[in-house]
Structures are given as structure tokens and as C-alpha cells.
Amino acid sequence: MENGLSVKGLRKSFGDRAVLNGVDFSVGAGELVVLLGANGSGKSTALRCVVGLAEADEGVVSVAGRELRGLTGAELARARRAAAMVFQQIHLVRRRNVIDNVCAGGLAGLPLSRSLTPALFPKDLRERAMACLDRVGLADRAKDRAGSLSGGQQQRVAIARALCQGAKVLLADEPVSALDPAAATQVMELLRELARNDGLAVAAVLHQPDLARRHADRVLGLLHGEIRFSTRGSDLSDVDIDALYAPDRAVAV
């Protein structure tokens, strides 16, 4: 996993509720992997543990070839920076314009004196942000207020912000769940291009098996905090899908 993501034996409990029971998976550079799983199966928790929004109880995570275990402080932060995340709720600062939002992805390297308000952002950061915005096809909207864009456009801005971070690994937690089908397809195509052409390792949580079949190189099924299956996107069968969502029905009865 020279430039990708590798996760081994990831465990996480909230109180006495075990959410992740030893999750193993990897995403190679240039690969788009889709995670499927019922609500509550631990998809978000797994991604949040990778980027440090949640702390795993156990497990080994490597991002872009660097094992995070054993790293601390600034070094851990630098290694983690190679992984970016986009969210279903997009999480842009809606009042700020698009380019300032994209710039915000690249703050980590800056001194405070250049980063406390957009007027201070240095020129090279702005240029880099503009290139990222161009990459997602929204360079012409740079000066618009983020909140005035459509949902699909906002999600692409969030992806541009992740690119501006300089990420090698891109995690997407239900990036298209709030989007209409056309916008969803556009975002998925962008994610796949970023994998194919730009060599990113992309992992996306989805709820639509069809999108997974169409766009994923590989599909992972998560059930009760464990990886239940791993298959090529085009090979994803209805039996696989039922295995993920049916147990809930059985329990519910």
C-alpha cells in the first residue's frame, strides 16, 4: 500500500457497545472502493477513526505508506494530513465564498499570521486552491457564496477542499446521499476520475448498490462491525446485498 490506505484489526467501542470488531481493509492508490452496510454497522465510525475524529481502541492504520501507530504530536498530524474526508452534510462555511472554503483545506502548513482570516491567505495557497477548484469543474464559481451553490456543486467544492489539503487518500462518508441522481452520478464520476487519473486512494460509503456496481473497483460489505465480503464492483450480487441488509430484518421480526 505504497500510497494508499491500509486498516488492520480496527476495534472501537462506545461504552460497552462494540461498534467495530476488527475491521481489515485496504484501498490502493488509483482505486475506488465502496463501503456498503446497514445503518449502524459502523461505516462512519471506521472512517472517523482513520482521520482521527474518533479514537480507535485497537488497530493499525497506514496512510500513504506511513503507519500512524507510534506517531505523536506534529508528526502524527502531518501523517494524517495525507487523508482527507468529505461528508454527507458537506460542511462548508456557507457564508464564505467558494475559493476561501477551498483554501481552508490548506491551512495546516501556514503560520497563524497568514491564516486567521481569508484576507491573509498567501497567494500560492490561493493559486493552489484555484487549481483544485478547476479540477472539480467549478473555477467559474470561485467568488460565489458557498451556500448559494446547489448540493452537488457544494459537494464538489468540499472535494476541492480535500484536494487542497494535498490528500493522497480520500474518504467520503455518504457523499451523495443528499443529492439528486444526476448530481450523485456527477460526484461519483469525479471520485472515480480522481482515483484513475490522479492516483488517489478513494473510499466512499454509499447506500445505493447500483452506484456501487457502476463506479466501484471494489465493494466491501460491512456487517456488525466486520467486513463481510469484498468483491469486484461489477460482480456485486443481490445475494451480497441481502446478506448486509437482511439480518436487520430478521432481528426486527
Binding site: 482521520v51 475524529l53 482527507a84 458537506i90 481552508a104 491551512l107 495546516a108 491564516s115
Partner: peptide
């Protein structure tokens, strides 16, 4: 205040004052 943008900037490796200045304050000052 929605913690979402804060999370997004934390993931990017921004330090706490940067997160406050660029995610919390723009949301809360108005």
C-alpha cells in the same frame, strides 16, 4: 453551531486557532 465545518478543518490538520478562526467564528459571529 454546527460542528461539521470544524470537523472538516480538523481533518485537514488545521490547528485549533485556525479552526476557530475559519470554521467556528464565521458561523457564530453574525
Amino acid at each position: 453551531v454546527d460542528p461539521g465545518p470544524t470537523d472538516a478543518l480538523r481533518v485537514s490538520g488545521a490547528r485549533e486557532p485556525q479552526v476557530i478562526a475559519n470554521a467556528v467564528l464565521p458561523a457564530v459571529v453574525p
